[in-house]
Design a protein around this nucleic acid. Sequence first.
DNA 1: CACTTGACCTGTCCGC
DNA 2: TGCGGACAGGTCAAGT
Length: 289
Amino acid sequence: MPELPEVETVRLGLADRVIGRIIIAEMHDTEKGFPNAPVDVKNFLLGATITGVRRRAKVLMIDLSTGYSLIVHLKMTGQLVFVSPDDRFGAGHPNDSLINTLPDKSTRVTLSFKDGAALYFNDQRKFGWMKLIPTAEIPSLSFMQKVGPEPLDASFTKEAFKERFTRRKKTSIKAALLDQSVVAGIGNIYADEALWGAKVHPTRKVETITEQEFTDLYNEVRAVMSLAIEKGGSSNHTYVNAEGKKGSYMDFARAFRREGLPCPRCGTIIEKIRVAGRGTHICPHCQVL
DNA sequence: CACTTGACCTGTCCGC
DNA sequence: TGCGGACAGGTCAAGT
């Protein structure tokens, strides 16, 4: 799914497009989709103006003028795509662009705006969700209580990074990196990329990671996340930004989904193994046990 | 408590 | 071309 850089890319795109727009209707085609409470939808979603779009870890928060917020998790295949009336079949937009074909069979929620624009929440695998809750209740959500620090926050130090792992001494470094309560926002792509960058084998137990390796991992996590945001995230199949367009980080990937190709550092063929139940890409020469 | 595994869904790709 | 199985960017609830 979208990891931190993909969710941040969506957030930036939405902030440009939906803030100030007024929601006049919502339609959804699955019960899992959202607004579980019809009364709240009627009173706090319809007619609301969007006032802000925030992100914490991989969760998006769309704040409304009514004091409620839409909370969204895209999980593996979720998308939030904004389409203005001018976009459809407009000049300069490729014919194969998603925006000309939405809604489609993966569309779970459609939010219609007063000016004719729409925001589509699509999710092929239906793992994602969208909820409507009072904005003031967000900080007390169990997710917000448990989630670790944002890796790109200026206040997030190398010392804090290392300290977060003390609770996961016996597990693999990859499983710990994927644990959202340790550090927020890392997923399968950027875990592999950061481990490759720091030359750390993903199955290494956390308690065996040296001071220098923690320093390298800290720097790599931040560098990889920053570069990915700059490139608009990674796209394999389903991920798109708020304009329905793909990101380009995969052009810069050094290990992820590069099995069978040479390691950019030493030329050894990248291998794919399984760690913590996830497909994992390593250079067997650079990342030794 | 720490840790691992399976389940949640749909679609696609790969080998027979 | 058809079919079964493995797998896909995430997170829970179970299990040990």
